[in-house]
Design a protein around this nucleic acid. Structure first.
Length: 348
RNA sequence: GGUGGGAUAUCCAAGUUGGCCAAAGGAAUCUGACUGUAAAUCAGCCGGGCGCAGCCCUUCGGGGGUUCGAAUCCCUCUCCCACCA
């Protein structure tokens, strides 16, 4: 996910300056659930899901980080060995009053939204990571400030030198309002296809775009200012090209840009799209458009398809369809069905 | 431990003298218009099936019941909140 790029970028800078990075996989922590910024308790993931997540995470990380200067640790290494009395000993280090300093907790407490005790433990658990690893700098989003500071107290308590906490601005998601996160489904993934990635970036708002320039491409304030005099759309295309290029290479970026311009700026039909054989989507020589579309499995229901047609979102070879009862026969030559701005498929 | 309040669609939230409830309103998503797949604005849609101005099915925390008929009444279970202890 793109948000990670913000942290990875910073880590990479540290590496380039000769530091070693440690990535902590919170495989243990995940079983608790991070309360950050959410109003209800997070569902617990299974072990298999956690492992899978960790793998994709690392794969993404090493697109940016220097593998030789990175150490990967799993926090289950130390937490799974802890006894209950160890746990209580850790809990002793924190008071409820201090915990309620945390904005998220005090807010939920005020509004009578449940806070599970286990969530109170989370900052301690995370702080303990720093203690075990003798961290000297910890990076995180601004929403992690409290948790990271707990690491400092634990280190101080243990008579060790205290880590520096460096918080990084959160990345706004595609909606332009909430922070980018998986649960909000407003994210761009590192492994999104070039086409999707390009499209997602083009859909962000102009204000969000400058954040992306600064946080993802590390543009300085002056550089951004300079760009602001250009046409925003051009800036956005440039942003999209650069980012797609970073993950998929320059050729893919050029191709994605070319296709975007063809399809959305010139309203042309893209070259590549899913294809369905007539025999696979129809039962006889004639079939209703609704049934044919439903058979592709691209839509939630026939009701939805009916709505699309009524609203003029469906086009056959570029011509809008208005009749919900329209019947088709095996198309010759193949026909291109377009739904909305970005769904295309061909029937042959 | 006691008493009271609550659980409604993706989220928030009406509805609880039983029928007019597939369920008000808001938000989000989605579609159309305008555009630059930006923002703002306007309009529409917003459970599913049927050749569909109609009919049918599933839904109001879970299960059971009363009734011609239940989101609404009764029983029970689960979870949440508040006050008292």
């Amino acid at each position: 996910m793109y948000w990670h790029l913000v942290v990875f970028n910073k880590l990479r800078q540290f590496q380039d300056l000769g530091h070693q990075a440690i990535l902590i996989i919170g495989d243990f922590t995940t079983t608790i659930g991070d309360p950050s910024g959410r109003s209800s308790t997070r569902p617990v993931l299974t072990e298999a899901e956690i492992r899978q997540n960790a793998e994709t995470y690392l794969e993404q990380a090493f697109r940016i980080l220097d593998k030789d200067k990175t150490r990967v640790v799993y926090n289950s290494e130390w937490f799974s060995k802890m006894s209950f009395s160890d746990c209580l000993g850790l809990a002793r280090k924190m008071t409820v009053a201090r915990m309620l300093e945390r904005d998220d907790f005090s807010k939920r407490h005020r509004e009578n939204v449940p806070i599970s005790i286990i969530e109170f433990l989370y900052p301690l658990v995370q702080g303990y990571d720093s203690l075990i690893l003798d961290a000297d700098v910890e990076l995180g989003g601004t929403d992690q400030l409290f948790n990271n500071l707990v690491g400092r107290s634990l280190q101080k308590d243990a008579g060790k030198s205290q880590q520096i906490v460096m918080t990084l601005p959160l990345l706004v998601g595609l909606d332009g309002v909430k922070k980018m996160s998986k649960s909000q489904d407003n994210y761009i993934a590192f492994n999104d296809s070039p086409k999707d990635m390009f499209g997602k970036i083009m859909s962000i708002s102009d204000t969000t775009m400058w954040d992306y320039y600064r946080l993802l491409l590390l543009y300085s304030a002056e550089e951004v200012k300079e760009l602001e005099s250009a046409h925003p759309m051009e800036c956005k295309k440039a942003l999209a090209s650069k980012l797609v290029g970073r993950f998929h290479g320059p050729e893919a970026a050029d191709a994605a840009r070319a296709e975007f311009e063809l399809v959305f700026s010139k309203n042309r039909i893209p070259d590549e799209m899913p294809e369905f054989l007539w025999s696979a989507v129809a039962t006889g020589s004639e079939e209703s458009l609704v049934n044919v579309m439903a058979a592709t499995g691209l839509f939630a229901s026939k009701k939805e398809i009916g709505r699309f047609i009524q609203q003029g979102a469906v086009k056959l070879d570029g011509n809008a369809v208005s009749d919900t009862m329209l019947r088709l026969s095996c198309p010759e030559p193949p026909v291109v069905v377009q739904v909305g701005k970005r769904v295309f498929f061909r029937i042959r």
